[in-house]
Structures are given as C-alpha cells and as structure tokens.
Design a protein around this nucleic acid. Sequence first.
DNA 1: GTTGACCTTCCCATGATGGCAAGGTCTAGC
DNA 2: GCTAGACCTTGCCATCATGGGAAGGTCAAC
Lengths: 147, 147
Amino acid sequence: MNIGAVAKASGVSAKMIRHYEQIGLIGHSPRTEAGYRQYQERDLHTLKFIRSARDLGFSLEQIRQLLSLWYDGERSSAEVKQLAESHLSDLDERIQALITMRDALVRLSESCCGDDRPDCPILEGLAGHVPASSSPPQLSKQKAQGV
Amino acid sequence: MNIGAVAKASGVSAKMIRHYEQIGLIGHSPRTEAGYRQYQERDLHTLKFIRSARDLGFSLEQIRQLLSLWYDGERSSAEVKQLAESHLSDLDERIQALITMRDALVRLSESCCGDDRPDCPILEGLAGHVPASSSPPQLSKQKAQGV
DNA sequence: GTTGACCTTCCCATGATGGCAAGGTCTAGC
DNA sequence: GCTAGACCTTGCCATCATGGGAAGGTCAAC
C-alpha cells in the first residue's frame, strides 16, 4: 500500500502519517526504489489504533505510551487503565472549564436585550461592571479566576 | 505605569501586552526617552476588558471586534449579543465534543478491571474491537449538566 | 558605583494539523 | 513511446495564544 491508500483506509491523513514517522510515533516504513513509502496490513492496524486514540482526545505523547503498552505482551492492564483515567480527569477539567465559561457567558448574554440601542450589559460585564444576576449564583462556577 | 505594573494590575502578562500591541489589538503606547512603554488608567481598563473576554474564551479576533464595539458609542447591543451567542454555540460544540470523548472513554475504562494481567479492553477498543457496552449508549446528553 | 529589578527586541517552542511549492514517479490511454 | 493526471517526495510556512530565554539597556536604592 502507498501512503494515500493507508491514509484513506485509516482515516489518518498522509501528512500526519509522515509526521508520526518523523517524530517516531510509528517506525520508518520501507521504501520502493523510487522512495515511496510502503505499508502493510499491520501498519494500517497501528494507524487505526492511533486514529481511535486521537478521537478519544489522547495526546500524541499518551498515544506513544499506549502503543508501547499495546505492543508489550507483559503489560498490566492497570497501567493502561491508569493512563486512561489520567486522561479522563484531564477531559473533565477541560469540560468544567468550558462549562464555567459558558455559564458566565450565558448569564451575561441573557441580561442583554440585544436591540438597536447601545446599552449593553455584556460589554459592561467585560469592562468589570458585573450585572446583577437574576437568579442566585448557586452554580458557584462564576468568575472564580477574575484577575 | 510601566508594563510590569499594568501587567500585574490587569492580569495580562507583559509578554502578551507587547504581543497585543504588535498585532494591533491595542494601540502603541507612548514611550519614555529610554524606550519604556508608558500606560494610563485607560489602558489598564482596556487590558482588564481583554482579560475578562479571554477568561470567557473569546478569541483575539473576537476581542478585536468586542473592543471596537465597546469603543463605538453608536453600536447596537444586538451586534454584541450576536457575537456572544456565536461564541456561545462554539463553546457548546466544544463541550459536546469533549463529553462525547469522555463518555466513550468512561465506557472503555469501566470495562477494564485494571489489574496486573495484560488483557485490556481499553487497548482492544482502541484497536477496533469495541467491547459490548453493558448499558445502552444514550447517556451522552444527561451528563451535559452535571459534570 | 555596584547590584538587582526592570525594561527592550529578537528568536524559538509548544501541539496537531493544514497548505503550498517544486519536483519526481507511476499508470492509463493514445 | 509520449503525455496527462494522479500520486508521491521534501521542505517551509501558518495556525492560536502563550511562554522561555538570550543579549543588552535603564533605573533606583544603597
């Protein structure tokens, strides 16, 4: 298989496959005389693995570890699970951060009537004059960080 | 005020203040004879605005627009609100994407007992052999609230 | 006058990905 | 055999917001 074929079959772009090779995430593939990279079923399998891990949000560094665990018949599933859990809490943090943003923005946005007049609680909020929230702030996820 | 002082007071690093100046997000500040940037209260106000908008996840491009609306006495609050709503749906998309990842990862992780044996449904899942999920996968939405 | 905190500009790095350019290779159709 | 077009190669640049560091100038306090 040429790179285009594995790319299509794996869902990883040719560009990225070359990149993964360059950073050592995957090995150097053999080349034809003309210099074309040649891939086997096994490589396709690896690329699909990488693709799945990317879809779950694992970083390339984490994928490097996942691959080495995958290849290692002596691994303990605990190691894998630990990696997954660690990524999981990272995801949770990011989700929380975004939700905090969203909640704050929703509150600002709701307080703005959005008509043709210039008065705008959103801008005022950004400028530091926080609008009185209509509902009590029991979400506790307000602007915790502030300045 | 020197740059260090506004940086501290605004929560925007000196590095970033110079950067914002360079990309034209804020104007060029006057300089002392020695070349030190000099800032006024007004600049501090602007930087705090930027910092708040960054805390809400607005991109620098969006902040550029927000600033110009802020400065524009003739703006309609509708324009501001539209910008906010647009960012809001972007946030929602990103949150959903992360939650989708998290749900999938949770499902994989739960199916792995995490002991010292090598058998690992997480790796198998990544390799394409999706484990049978114990409960039907309709949980994606409900968790949007309670993360 | 020295020291240390602060400032300046400039370059590089991040992470994962895409784009483009200049050029080589392969293959199908003529 | 020749040519068009699809495919491959490498290499550089861009994204986005931010930080690090180097080399050097300035300022204030002691």
